[in-house]
Computed example of a mutant assay.
Amino acid sequence: MLYLNDKDIQALGMDWPALLEVIESTVRLLDAGDYAQPMKPYLRYGDPNNRIIAMPAYVGGEVHTAGIKWIASFPGNHAYGLPRAHSVVVLNESRTGQPSALLCSPLPSIVRTASVSGLLLRRVMEARSYEQLQLGIIGWGPIGRYHARMALSLYGDRIGRIRVYDKKGVGLEEFPPGWRERIQPVKAWEEAYLHSEVCITCTVSDDRYITLPPRPGSLLLHVSLRDYAPEALALVEAIIVDDWDEVCRENTDIELLHKMQGLARADTLTLADVICRDALAGIDADQPILFCPMGMAVFDVAVASYYVKAAKERGMGVALD
């Protein structure tokens, strides 16, 4: 059994084009039915704000691996100087079920999230002629920062500015000078939201603070799922989800739209519709697009498998008896 920790994943790095291909090939396996993924349970005890989620899945094709991500989200951890989220991924050989790898690091989960966003962003940029892309990020935790890394790595020559808002402040120390100059901290979420063709919400907010409608033709990468008041999204017709059953629960903005405005599965597109059936071609260029990904275990298994393969090729990690 191969063990990989945070330093191993950092050393292997983030090859964003390769990671997007991992996500895209997994979407195609989803569309072909070559996967298994039960609904993920939420474990809660004590403080109702805390949760631990089990995310099991099997991915077919060349991945041909089963596994589970076990991810804890404890928002109060910052008071103890600890990260909000902790996660491990266990992979199993698909033929025997024997555990084959253990990844003890939050990075595969963070990278998976940014890669899914990156895949949709790539398709939208192919469909719409953003000349000098203005990007907004609300929430500057690890997921927000890695979205900035992904976007600058893949589309740096087409990004004019990244406006970033976080009520706790915005630090840029981890970014190299060439990237740091492109990132502009702003004093209000409205500056990041209204001045950007692409706005990425990466907060841990339970308050629906975004009350204004999006700018025409914008892409809303709604990673954090609980930021928009229903009235802000009332006129958004192009809504994309990764999995309707997963995302229409747990007090997400999609669930609120379902309960308050009658949004139904048939009113949404899936990521597979976009990747496999070019669904963006039917959306007018001036229409905002909302993407709400609850997070799919198949992507976690596929990304973890990618890192395990890379580690074996480079002789990294620790073999456990």
Rank of each mutant, 00 (worst) to 15 (best):
L263M: 03
R112L: 06
A264T: 15
D15N: 15
D242T: 11
D34P: 04
M14K: 14
Y3H: 14
Y228R: 05
A234L: 12
I210P: 05
W140M: 07
K187L: 09
V274L: 09
V170D: 02
E62G: 03
A36H: 14
Q134L: 05
L235S: 14
F74C: 08
Y3R: 13
V303H: 09
Y42G: 06
A66C: 13
I162W: 03
G33Q: 10
D321T: 14
L4T: 05
I183F: 11
Y130D: 08
L225Y: 05
C202G: 02
L280I: 06
R149L: 12
M39R: 12
P213N: 00
A36Q: 14
Y42H: 13
A188T: 12
A54G: 14
K312Y: 02
R215P: 07
S94F: 05
V301G: 02
A234S: 15
E237Y: 03
W140E: 06
R226A: 10
L103R: 03
E231A: 12
N92R: 01
D31F: 01
G97E: 09
T203H: 07
G141D: 05
R149W: 15
K40W: 03
M14F: 13
L269Y: 13
S105R: 01
T65C: 15
A188D: 15
P83A: 10
A279H: 10
G13S: 04
V164K: 02
Q134K: 15
G315F: 08
P56N: 11
D321Y: 12
A18R: 13
V124E: 08
E24A: 11
Y146C: 03
L320P: 03
L257N: 00
L256D: 09
A127C: 09
D207C: 07
C202V: 09
Q287V: 09
R28P: 06
I162K: 02
L20F: 02
W140K: 06
N5M: 02
E181L: 06
P288I: 01
G160L: 06
D278F: 09
K259N: 12
A11D: 13
T252M: 09
M294P: 07
R163C: 03
T113F: 06
G178T: 06
N77R: 09
P213I: 07
E250Y: 11
R161H: 01
W140Q: 05
G81Y: 03
E24I: 04
S205A: 15
D253E: 10
S73Y: 04
V59P: 10
G217W: 08
L152P: 02
I275C: 11
E93L: 07
R95N: 05
T96W: 06
K69G: 08
L119H: 04
L29Y: 10
R145D: 00
Y146F: 15
L107R: 12
T26Q: 07
S224W: 01
R145F: 05
D15L: 05
V90F: 11
G139C: 05
R277N: 14
I183S: 08
P214Q: 11
I210F: 02
L263Q: 10
F74K: 05
A238F: 06
A114R: 04
P230L: 04
G141R: 08
G315I: 07
R122G: 01
N251R: 15
E174N: 04
A188K: 07
R123I: 03
E313F: 00
L133C: 05
Q261T: 01
V116E: 07
G171P: 01
K259D: 10
P177H: 13
K168D: 13
Q184P: 00
